[in-house]
């Protein structure tokens, strides 16, 4: 059985400069394997190589070296394209078409049978929350509404593999919730979802596995909970009705104490302080534990640390790419 997506040593260099003799390496020997039915998060800061990877998989750009397969077929194969959906980053569609016309046009290109076309277009626009506006020209749509139309067009052929480039971009909280539930729904239907994001919370809520890219290179890969960089490094407790003397007793145990209101504090505890031991102690002072959360390194922290350590930011990759070509 072949993986849904297979990427092997995929590399992309862009020629730069007037004579185009220098090269900027946007992606550096990326290898990934994503099984069917997975929701896979492709994470990284801006300029890390996420969109480059997706464009390579869609054959909007061609690799300098390396190869990739989708559903066991080389990228760009028409059979594979019939079974995939793609939402580009910040999508843009034809201003002069209505949402309904755009989806009908794309459904025609996807050979969706005439009888099913109208029903599917209407159903998808309902699903992404485009109501009466579906008969308006897209020039009148907001960014969030265009994003919803973009998601609908990616689902027209009921794809086996869905590629979403920053699907939450431009969406309000309601929209983000809708997209999250849609991705989980697709996962439950057995579809493979490959989505890029720079927001760790999206990946945590949705993904079985993630890959993290920085400076065009794979920085980490695996289950988010298993990645050493993202394991809990402590606990954050919000406590209410904490008396001053009780606070003084707890202060030595905490790495940081922040007052957020009268008698209300945030206590940051090291991982060595087991919450099951501390919570009864807090309760015995008459205080209430409002919430308790593990403290993890944020994606931003991770990148800042990695980039500082390895000197492999986007600029670093450029310099190295240029160096490699000299």
């Amino acid at each position: 059985m072949f993986p849904a997506i297979l990427i092997e040593d995929l590399t992309k260099d862009y020629p730069v400069g007037f004579w185009r003799r220098r090269h900027y390496r946007a992606l550096d020997r990326l290898s990934l394997s994503i099984e069917a039915g997975e929701v896979f998060g492709f994470l990284g800061p801006n300029g890390a190589g996420k969109t480059t990877t997706l464009k390579l998989l869609m054959q909007l750009i061609f690799p300098t070296s390396g190869r990739a397969e989708i559903l066991g077929r080389p990228i760009g194969h028409v059979d594979a394209r019939r079974r995939i959906g793609y939402l580009p980053e910040n999508p843009y569609f034809y201003d002069y078409l209505t949402a309904e016309e755009l989806l009908t046009y794309f459904a025609q290109l996807l050979d969706v049978p005439t009888a099913a076309r109208r029903k599917r277009v209407a159903g998808l626009l309902d699903r992404v929350g485009i109501g009466r506006e579906r008969r308006f020209q897209l020039r009148k749509f907001s960014k969030g509404m265009i994003q919803r139309v973009g998601i609908a067009q990616a689902l027209l052929n009921e794809p086996d593999v869905l590629f979403l480039d920053e699907p939450m971009s431009g969406l309000d909280p309601l929209g983000r919730r809708d997209v999250r539930s849609l991705i989980l729904e697709l996962r439950d239907q057995g579809r493979t979802v490959f989505f890029s994001s720079h927001i760790l919370a999206d990946a945590e809520a949705l993904c079985g596995r993630v890959a993290v890219v920085a400076g065009g290179r794979l920085a980490a890969e695996g289950r988010l909970s298993e990645l050493a960089e993202f394991t809990a490094r402590g606990w954050e407790l919000v406590v209410a009705n904490l008396a001053p003397e009780a606070l003084e007793r707890l202060r030595p145990l905490a790495t940081r104490v922040t007052e957020i209101g009268t008698g209300r504090y945030t206590l940051e505890l090291p991982l060595t302080q087991a919450p099951e031991r501390i919570i009864p102690e807090i309760a015995s002072t008459g205080a209430t534990v409002v919430s308790m959360n593990p403290v993890r390194e944020t994606l931003e922290d991770f990148f800042i640390q990695r980039i500082t350590e390895a000197g492999t930011g986007a600029r670093g990759a450029m310099a190295e790419g240029e160096h490699a070509r000299r």
Partner: peptide, 14 residues
């Protein structure tokens, strides 16, 4: 320029 080609070329057309 407007990048509308991205969604179009991801469809099964050459």
């Amino acid at each position: 320029e407007r990048r509308s080609i991205y969604s179009l070329l991801a469809k099964p057309i050459s």
